[in-house]
Amino acid sequence: MTRLNKRPALLLFLLVLAILAPLGHGNYIIYVLTSWLIFSIAAMGLNLTLGYAGQISLAQASFMAIGAYTTAIMTLAGWHWLIAAPVGMVLCFLVGLVLGYPALRVKGHFLAFVTLAFNTLVFLVLRNEDWLTGGSYGLSSMPRPDFYLFKTLKQLPFYYFTLAVTVVAALVLWGIVRSPWGRAFKALRENPVRAESLGVDTRRITLLAFAIGSAYAGLAGALVSPLVQYIDPGSFGLSQSLRILLMVVVGGSGFFFGPFVGAAVVILLPEMLRFTAGYYLIIYSALVIVMLAYVPNGLIGIGTRLRERFWPQHRARGDLAKGAQLK
């Protein structure tokens, strides 16, 4: 019971920390912190697909592109961000359904291959359809959302705006994961055969998880376009998708706060390790492989493992935790 009481206090502390973090820093640091939040949203979505539903999606950046371009085109045409962003998310959700439907009909890693190939298609559309997307020059000078009393033109208000969106997105996801419907996601990951035998329509649930995860990427994209105010096809390539995937894995897939930790490692750490320059990605990818060999649960997994060791909690039916893995 004590843990349950500690948790809200810890969350409140983290939230206060997030509110205080940018104060007294220059615009650049605030920009980096904002992009940390944005990538956390994208990674949160992928965590639903990978961590809860157990499917690899390699198109998270492409869905960000769909969200970013939709928002950019609509806000440039004079629509408000509050209308443009949901449109982008719905579009991502629908594309997710269309893409996921064939891929999830068959078992195996088909979603990974389909989404891998989907990256190319999105890139080609963005580059070739100049009339809509500005071709390889992209789109620029998108307006930032304006809420009359609260303008987000400056970097700091935009950070708080992003923080608010992130908190709402996280709460919604929390609700989804806690709902009976979200528990079906988890059941599916732990033991698909058993989930199916208990009446969970695995195919539909996986498809929904993927589509919702894609919609989260759309939301992240909708925030990217007012943040950087310049988008081009090249910034949403396969390597960006892989980056988001590794965020989820490094943070700890299947843990609710994993994406935040993972995004921090991928976005904030390179800023601190500037001296490693071009070697950063080499070192990072090697460390990911080592990590997968020893702690497949990611950084949060290390945390829980350490806690178990030093502050062992009373465990009722420890075998239940293992039960899911028994074949």
């Binding site: 690899i56 390597s239 892989l242 995937l245 590794l246 894995v249 990911v288 492989i289 997968l292 060999a293």
Partner: peptide, 8 residues
């Protein structure tokens, strides 16, 4: 995922 990291 490790093979993807290996690719990078």
């Amino acid at each position: 995922i490790a093979t993807m990291a290996l690719a990078i």
